[in-house]
Amino acid sequence: MRRRIAALGCWLAALALPALGATEIVVATVNNEHMIEMQRLTPHFERANPDVRVRWVTLEEATLRQRVSTDMARGSSRYDVLTIGMYETQIWARRGWLRPIDPPPDYDLADLLPAIRAGLTLDGRLYAAPFYGESSMLYYRRDLAERAGIVFPERPSWRQVREAAERLHDPANGVYGICLRGKPGWGENLALVMTMANAFGGQWADLNWRPQLES
């Protein structure tokens, strides 16, 4: 029987079964610094909840996404609590895999960044509460840019970024024009590639699933 899971902090949670008088919660999460830091709080949680024990499973993002998606599609999960991203939240909510969250009165929904809140909401109901948010942004060396006579506008286009990178590129002196994340995977580099494609008016596929990226 398919079970629906409540989302807690870009997280999914279901009650664990009691084992030897105590409840063990198996938490599957991505192995980034935010989640590693959270694991350090486990002793505080267990002291406040002496009948609960927490066991962590930390995985690379691509591995976590693959395992969790497979488990959910099969209607079962080896984990009691797991982290998901904004990408999955609305898709899983539509499939009935998530229960909507009814935050307590002291949880300030208006304090969430509007774009994040919208991405975690379906039909006016919040289906996940974010533990942290991510975005893409441009950092640059101001001293190198000034030396090359480059002035970035407030919202530079990717063409302007490329032109600046070409002017700054000087490998002979240990200067490389740009550094982009190259590790393969959805959260590792494809999210950035999609942002770039969208900026040029591209899309992966049309409504009939015909591929649209041709160059």
Rank of each mutant, 00 (worst) to 15 (best):
K183N: 01
V161E: 00
A172E: 07
K183W: 00
A165F: 03
P153Y: 01
A148T: 02
G185Q: 01
K183R: 14
N173E: 06
H169A: 09
K183T: 09
E154W: 02
R167L: 15
K183C: 00
H169E: 13
R155G: 05
D170A: 04
G182Y: 01
P184W: 10
R159F: 06
V151I: 09
E166S: 03
R155P: 06
R167C: 13
D143G: 01
V175K: 05
P171R: 13
P153G: 01
A148H: 07
A165G: 02
R167M: 15
V161N: 01
I150D: 10
G177Y: 10
P171N: 13
F152V: 10
R155S: 07
G182Q: 03
S157M: 11
V151K: 05
G149A: 13
L144V: 03
G174E: 07
Q160C: 06
G185A: 08
R162P: 00
F152Q: 11
R159G: 07
G185R: 02
R159D: 14
D170Q: 08
Y176G: 10
P156G: 03
C179Q: 13
R181W: 10
P156F: 04
R181V: 11
L144T: 06
G177Q: 12
V161L: 12
E166T: 02
P156C: 05
A145E: 00
L168N: 14
P153K: 04
A172R: 09
P171G: 14
R181G: 08
R181Y: 09
A164H: 15
A172H: 10
E146S: 15
A165L: 06
E146R: 15
V175M: 03
P156N: 03
L180V: 09
P156L: 04
G177V: 10
R147K: 11
P184H: 15
R147P: 07
L180G: 01
K183V: 08
P184N: 13
P156K: 02
N173M: 05
R159W: 05
G149H: 14
W158N: 00
A172K: 10
G177E: 08
G177H: 11
G185M: 06
A164N: 12
R159M: 08
C179S: 09
E146Q: 14
V175T: 11
G174P: 12
P171S: 13
D170Y: 02
D170K: 04
G185K: 00
S157F: 10
V151F: 04
D143C: 03
G174A: 08
R162V: 07
A145P: 00
G174M: 07
H169Y: 12
R155W: 10
D143H: 08
F152Y: 15
N173Y: 04
P153E: 03
Q160L: 08
R167W: 12
S157E: 11
N173V: 03
E154S: 05
E154R: 07
P156M: 05
Q160H: 11
I178V: 15
C179L: 09
L168H: 15
I150Y: 14
G185H: 01
E166Y: 06
G182D: 03
D170C: 05
I150E: 11
P156T: 03
G182V: 03
A145R: 00
A172N: 07
L144A: 07
G177M: 15
H169W: 10
R181I: 12
R167H: 09
A164D: 14
G149F: 14
G182C: 01
A145K: 01
